[in-house]
Design a protein around this nucleic acid. Structure first.
Length: 425
RNA sequence: GCGGGUGUAGCUCAGUAGGUUAGAGCGCCAGCUUGUGGUGCUGGAUGUCGCCGGUUCGAAUCCGGUCACUCGCCCCA
């Protein structure tokens, strides 16, 4: 085994996995377009501040998972080195782009993005240090109907990927800032009174992210949590109404969900609606797509107060579940024998491609080898052009499935092959 | 970051109580077939047994460390 390995938590993506991931992105672009979303591609790294502020200094992501570095000032010709970070998620960068480009002139904005993100976590199946996400954000809509839209879009995508019966939508409301703060205080008060029985992890979370304790896996924690005040109890009227409207909208479309009072979001900037599409087929990495509302984020980044809802989906996880990749159309293998034929073959190959066929030119080895390679490449036809064919003006077209062979005049080649199913699977 | 499992050929995996040249299937290469493939037959190549160190006359095998993957926790998509 070679000593050359990719860095921990990274890997090379090719073959079936690459096709499956491509299928996820393709479906996403199609579905998101049908909801009026347009592409926004932000840089893969940003000033560290862009992530540090919204995610919160104490969050796990900022405190230990970000790939941050200082640019070399001298080499780049900058006066000062820059503090930069590989994006650990999409939302913050998109909000930054929204502010940078003065997009508040043009609300609402619907953005779709996709690509790699980086977090220095311990790798597991479906959890990598360089992973890939699809991401959708709807900015400038503070109404609950927008939440319904964005969840409906996710639901449509998941169904298009054939995952409708493999995933369950978990839904919750964190309430507005006031409700969320009130609940947090209630919860901390309750949990603090049981401090002696909380797990070590949860004692830490009590300081950093108390809401997280609600979905602790620890048995002892669960017993305590079972007696905790429910989130809905500290919710004000407006927040309740907001959530009711979201649920009514989902009901109207017929999207099934479970109200999961223990569902919270890791990032500080979430409010109101929080949701996760969860599968039981990926072990601890069961969350396949998740998101929620983040009304305070853009303002926090220094932009005009602008509400937002969005979600991110894990491309690897979705690809593992759906395995919907399509294999490309079977190619035509073009086999020129000899120098003169090789020159002629350039022309023929381009004609075939213009007619819509996938063409691979195989110029080396004897015919036997080439036919062998054609089989392995999954080719439907072999087109053999040698001195005999040049002289007669007829190419030898071999149907590799049927084992039959016929002669076709050069000018008719493209049409004939396509009619015979040259691009059929 | 914490705990468990795994690591032998390109792939999937055997490997007897530590003992000579480490195996199988698939795949790969060649020949049977000098311009005709898939099937068949015949032959062939391939590994620093993840890496480093230790014990031993002798280590794929035992011990320690390390790296990677994997399962759970943490975290999250």
């Amino acid at each position: 085994m070679s000593k050359l390995q990719p860095a921990r938590g990274t890997r090379d993506i090719y073959g079936e996995e690459a096709r499956n991931m491509r299928a996820v992105v393709d479906a996403f672009q199609r579905v998101a377009s049908s909801y009026g979303f347009e592409e926004l591609a932000t840089p893969i790294f940003e000033f560290t501040e862009v992530y540090k502020r919204p995610l919160g200094e104490t969050s796990d992501i900022v405190s230990k998972e970000m790939y941050s570095f200082e640019s070399s000032a001298r080499e780049a010709g900058d006066k000062e080195p820059e503090e930069l970070t590989l994006r650990p998620e999409f939302t913050a960068g998109i909000c930054r782009a929204f502010i940078s480009n003065g997009m508040q002139q043009n609300l609402p904005c619907r953005f779709m993005s996709w690509g790699p993100a980086f977090r220095r976590e311990r790798p597991q199946k479906g959890r990598y240090r360089q992973f890939h996400q699809i991401n959708a954000e709807l900015l400038g809509q503070d109404n609950p109907e927008a939440d319904v839209d964005i969840i409906a879009m996710a639901w449509r995508l998941l169904n298009e990927l054939g995952l409708g019966d493999k995933i369950v939508l978990h839904l919750n409301s964190l309430g507005d800032q006031e409700s969320r703060a009130a609940y947090r205080a209630d919860l901390v008060a309750y949990l603090s009174s049981h401090k002696d029985r909380l797990s070590e992890d949860s004692l830490r979370r009590l300081e950093t992210n108390p809401l997280r304790i609600l979905d602790s896996k620890d048995e002892g924690d669960r017993e305590i949590v079972a007696g905790a005040p429910p989130m809905s109890a500290s919710m004000n009227e407006a927040s309740k109404q907001f959530f009711d409207t979201v649920k009514a909208g989902l009901d109207a479309i017929g999207i099934p969900y479970v109200h999961d009072e223990k569902l919270v979001r890791g990032m500080d900037y979430y409010c109101h609606t929080a949701f996760e599409f969860i599968t039981s087929e990926l072990g601890a990495q069961g969350t396949v797509l998740a998101g929620g509302r983040y009304d305070g984020l853009i303002e926090q980044l220094g932009g005009p107060p602008t509400p937002g809802v969005g979600w991110a989906g894990g491309i690897e996880r979705l690809a593992m579940l759906s395995a919907a990749g399509h294999v490309p159309a079977r190619p035509v293998m073009l086999m020129p024998m000899g120098e003169a034929a090789t020159r002629k073959a350039f022309e023929l190959a381009e004609e075939l491609r213009s007619a819509g066929a996938n063409v691979i030119s195989d110029r080396s080895g004897n015919l036997k080898k080439r036919l062998n390679r054609a089989n392995r490449a999954g080719a439907r036809f072999a087109v053999i052009v040698g001195d005999n064919e040049l002289e007669s003006g007829l190419a030898a077209v071999k149907d590799l499935d049927a084992g039959t062979q016929s002669d076709v005049a050069f000018p008719d080649l493209a049409e004939t092959v396509c009619n015979m199913g040259g691009d059929a699977r």
